[in-house]
Structure formats: structure tokens, C-alpha cells
Design a protein around this nucleic acid. Structure first.
Length: 314
DNA sequence: AAGCAGATCAACCGCCCACCC
DNA sequence: GGGGTGGGCGGTTGATCTGCT
């Protein structure tokens, strides 16, 4: 038995708000303030769901909202924060005065995601597609070339033209990656060095109120990295490691209280709580995670030999 | 000018969590 | 401690706008 609906959906108005309804919300908030939204429709004389009233207020009517286009500086903030904490739109929006989570989310989905894709960067991981594909092979225990064979990375156009796509779990991200693979295969070459990207800090003239981050791409070789990971003798648990990892969303969430209040905010008091610029090593963070998973997997197989007979396919 | 496709964004949905009793 | 509730959140939908043919 689920939770009862917050209102009688059959008898409340839905869809676009009229100026008259907006005026009622504004008048109500002006005299009563914000809070107890379930009572707002009744008290304000609106035939709307309370939740809908709250959304209308927070996303549109709030006097402190900006309704103009996103600035390049705001864009850089969003990119940097999304790279660090993922699609935590409300957290990102809090760093952008006058913007709502809905604004940021829409801007990301309609503009920034495409922009990254055009740059050859996977908007989910913020890593070059080539690197993501390479890691897919790595997770499967395959070399890049074998990965290409295993997941049908394109040696030539025929694979792609025959619609054999590697990401086949049916998740939205898989579908997206397949789409991007299709879009990018013609220029991709596994022998080519992999593309990495990083933020370059530009002297603080404008900014997300201070520091400008230029999202740039460059071609370079991919290096393996030595990573910290929980050893079998470590007192920390695997779960703690994952939770504590700054580039997993949960880890970022845990740490946001720390990094969001540190140096960046000092330098950028209003845009504020953005992580200090990370150097190129950041791009390897996901490598670290993947490598660690693989190492742990290996350890498990050693600990539990019967599992050696089981084919583990991620 | 009409029709269509893609882009945009306001609004909704449903889940989750913190808070209160 | 546990259940109920309000509010917050991320994902999704769909109406409208815009540009192209």
C-alpha cells in the first residue's frame, strides 16, 4: 500500500499557470511567507496541488531568480560541479545565485550535454569516449584491441553500420553511449592516443564570480596511476573506500561539506562552494576506481577458488 | 505558407528523507 | 522507536517555440 496522494489529482487544475494564479501565490507569500504548502491552495484560493504551488514559486516566481541566459561563467561552474558531484542539480544550483535546480538541469540536458558530446567527452563520466570504451574493455579483462573485438568497437564502419553496439544493458546511459559511439566512430582510432581533458584556470577577471574555468581538451597518452586502495590488512572497509572516494557521487556527497567550504569559496564567495581546481590527475580518478574494483575482484577469486569457474561479466 | 523536426523549458511524477508526534 | 507527513530532489513528459525544407 503506497502513500496516499498529496491532493485529489482529479479535482485540481494542472498545466500552465495563469497570471492570475501567479498573482495569488505572490500575494499569499507576501502576507504569510513560505511554508506549509499543502495549505497554500486553500488559503490562497487556488485550485492547485500544494506541491505544484511550491514548484511554481521556487522555479519561477521567487523574486531572486534570474530569467536571463546562463553566462559562460555559470556554464563553467556547472561543468566543473557536474564533473565532481554528478547530477546533484540542487547542490549545483546553490552555487549559482538566482538559478534553480530545474534551470540547471534543463540547461545541462539541452545545451551542455551536447556541447561535451561534440567535444568527444562522455557527459556522464566527463571522460573522452575513447577512454570510456577502453575502460569497458579493461573491466572485461580485455586489452583495448580485444575490447574492440569483444564490444564491437569499430575497426571500420561496417561494424557500426550493422548496428552492433557494445553497451547493451539497456540502461539510459548504455543507450546514450551507443548513440555516441555511432556518432563518433568515424573519427575514433584506438591506436590514437586517448583524449584527456582538464580545466584550466584563467585569472579571475570575471567568473563564477571569481575564477574562470576553461573546459579544454587535448590529446595525450594515457598513463596508469598508482592508487590508494584498501589492502586486505587495512582496517578500513571496502564500503568506506567507495563512500570516501571523492569522485563517486556518494563520496563527493560526503566530502562536499569539506570541499565546498574550502578555498574556492574563499576566492569565490558568491559562486562560492566549488571545488578547488583539480589537476590532470583528476582524470585518472575513475581509473583508480576501476583498477581498485579489478584488484578486489582478483583478490576475491583467489580467496574463493570455486568462483574461478564462474565467468564474471560486468 | 504549411508541415515537420528538433530544441526548449515549465510542469509533473514518484521516490526519498528529515522531522514531528 | 515507529509511523505519518511535508518538503526536496532527480528524472521525465509534453506543450510550445523555432528553424528548416
Amino acid at each position: 500500500m503506497g502513500r496516499p496522494p498529496c491532493c485529489d489529482k482529479a479535482n485540481v487544475k494542472r498545466g500552465p499557470w495563469t497570471a492570475e494564479e501567479d498573482a495569488k501565490i505572490l500575494a499569499y507569500v507576501a502576507s504569510h511567507g513560505i511554508g506549509n504548502w499543502t495549505l497554500v491552495p486553500q488559503k490562497a484560493g487556488l485550485n492547485r496541488c500544494g506541491k505544484s504551488c511550491r514548484l511554481r514559486w521556487t522555479n519561477y516566481l521567487r523574486p531572486d531568480l534570474k530569467h536571463d541566459n546562463f553566462t559562460p561563467q555559470e556554464e563553467e561552474c556547472i561543468l566543473e560541479l557536474h564533473k565532481t558531484i554528478g547530477s546533484r542539480w540542487s547542490l549545483i544550483a546553490k552555487q549559482l545565485p538566482g538559478r534553480t535546480d530545474n534551470d540547471v538541469k534543463n540547461y545541462w540536458n539541452t545545451k551542455l550535454k551536447k556541447k561535451l558530446v561534440n567535444m568527444g567527452i562522455d557527459p556522464v563520466t566527463h571522460k573522452p569516449f575513447a577512454q570510456v570504451f577502453a575502460e569497458y574493455g579493461k573491466i572485461s579483462g580485455l586489452s583495448i584491441q580485444n575490447a574492440r573485438n569483444h564490444i564491437h568497437l569499430p575497426n571500420n564502419t561496417t561494424d557500426m553500420e550493422s548496428n552492433q553496439f557494445p553497451f547493451s544493458n539497456g540502461t539510459p546511459h548504455d543507450k546514450f553511449m551507443n548513440d555516441q559511439l555511432q556518432l563518433n566512430y568515424s573519427t575514433w582510432d584506438s591506436k590514437e592516443t586517448l583524449q584527456t581533458h582538464s580545466f584550466t584556470q584563467v585569472p579571475p577577471s570575471t567568473s563564477c564570480n571569481g575564477t574562470v574555468y576553461t573546459y579544454s581538451s587535448s590529446f595525450s597518452s594515457v598513463h596508469s596511476h598508482v592508487h590508494t586502495m584498501p589492502s586486505s590488512s587495512s582496517t578500513s572497509t571496502w564500503n568506506e573506500f567507495i563512500l570516501g572516494h571523492p569522485f563517486t557521487s556518494s563520496g563527493a556527497e560526503q566530502k562536499q561539506g569539506i570541499f565546498l567550504s574550502n578555498s574556492f569559496q574563499k576566492e569565490n564567495p558568491s559562486c562560492g562552494e566549488v571545488e578547488e581546481k583539480q589537476p590532470v590527475e583528476e582524470a585518472s580518478a575513475m581509473d583508480s576506481f576501476v583498477d581498485t574494483i579489478l584488484a578486489r575482484d582478483k583478490q576475491m577469486l583467489m580467496d574463493f577458488p570455486p568462483l574461478l569457474d564462474v565467468y564474471l561479466d560486468y
